[in-house]
């Protein structure tokens, strides 16, 4: 276990460094955004604007604002939202993050499991009936935008059949079913495609032939030997895919009236809400950096060839 410690420590350091650079770059780039962070800017008089700038410290020089900001986030204070009149950003994002993360994780989990399964079936029946079906399904899934799927699902299950709620987030797990389905189409299609390609290659390798010669059934071979080897490239993409899903899909969340964080990512930029922009950037980057780190660890667990060296 102790060979992991220096490795993890090194990685954590680099993660922190990456975050620091991102924070700094974003802070200074934001300065170039046109407009003001005040929603009512069309109607504010010049003196009112001046007063507002003074209150929120925007009349201070950029660098001192930067240092202030850094100092604050080290205390866990991410500032207040300008869009939402002085709400603490930690509260705002904190409350909204939950549903998005839940949906994201559910979608990735469900989509990947189903996608891997479909991909395996496709690979095992290469170029025959089931393969064609699975591949078509995957292509359709990639081509149809997830909000189209969302609206169709809503129409079918919530309005016509009335099995599931139309939207909102108030019926516990049942409320998450349709949005998860809509969001899972993308990871499902990706996984199916990846696994199929990898499995086809893996299934034609020598060690699989040997496994057959041992007298193993095709299915068992696929799960025991094939899957683990085919999974490796998929893990590479799973990371960023998960992050982009966890940080909310604006449209699907809107369609199902889910109080998620998706909208913040787009809206905060459009309304120049500086502190929210910083916070969501940090959030996204932190998630991404962490997921990449976890992915690397996952590699090592699955593929013994890339394990951290250092044993006797």
């Amino acid at each position: 276990m102790n060979r992991w410690i220096p490795y993890i420590a090194k990685r954590l350091f680099y993660m922190a460094l990456t975050l620091f650079i991102i924070i700094t770059a974003t802070f200074f780039l934001m300065n170039f955004l046109p407009g003001t962070p005040f929603n009512n800017q069309d109607r504010l008089s010049a003196s009112q604007l001046e007063m507002l700038n003074k209150k929120y410290g925007f009349d201070q020089p950029l660098f001192s604002r930067y240092l202030n900001y850094l100092g604050n986030i080290l205390h866990g204070d991410f500032g207040i939202s300008l869009q939402f009149s002085d709400q603490k950003i930690t509260t705002l994002l904190g409350q909204r993050m939950g549903p998005s993360i839940q949906l994201g994780l559910q979608a990735v989990l469900f989509g990947t499991v189903v996608g891997v399964f479909l991909g395996m079936i496709a690979a095992m029946h290469q170029n025959r009936g089931l393969d064609v079906f699975c591949s078509l399904f995957a292509i359709t899934g990639r081509s149809v935008p997830n909000f189209v799927v969302a609206v169709l699902l809503q129409y079918l299950f919530a309005i016509t059949l009335k099995w599931l709620p139309i939207g909102l987030w108030d019926e516990g797990f049942r409320s998450t079913i349709l949005p998860t389905l809509a969001l899972s189409i993308s990871p499902m299609a990706e996984s199916c495609r990846f696994i199929r390609t990898e499995m086809v290659e893996v299934l034609s390798s020598d060690y699989i032939e040997l496994a057959r010669a041992k007298g193993m059934s095709e299915i068992r071979i696929a799960f025991s030997h094939g899957l683990r080897n085919a999974l490796i490239p998929l893990i590479t993409v799973l990371g960023p895919m998960t992050v982009s899903l966890m940080t909310g899909s604006l449209v699907v969340e809107n369609i199902f009236a889910v109080p998620g964080i998706g909208e913040q990512f787009t809206k905060s930029i459009l309304s120049n809400d500086y502190y929210t922009i910083m916070a969501v950037t940090i959030l996204f980057s932190a998630l991404l950096v962490t997921v990449i780190f976890l992915t690397d660890i996952l590699y090592q667990l699955i593929d013994p060839r890339v394990r951290v060296e250092g044993q006797a």
Partner: peptide, 11 residues
């Protein structure tokens, strides 16, 4: 209720 999607709203 805050509903942002016109379609969902109507539904």
């Amino acid at each position: 209720l805050i509903v942002k999607d016109a379609n969902t709203f109507l539904n």
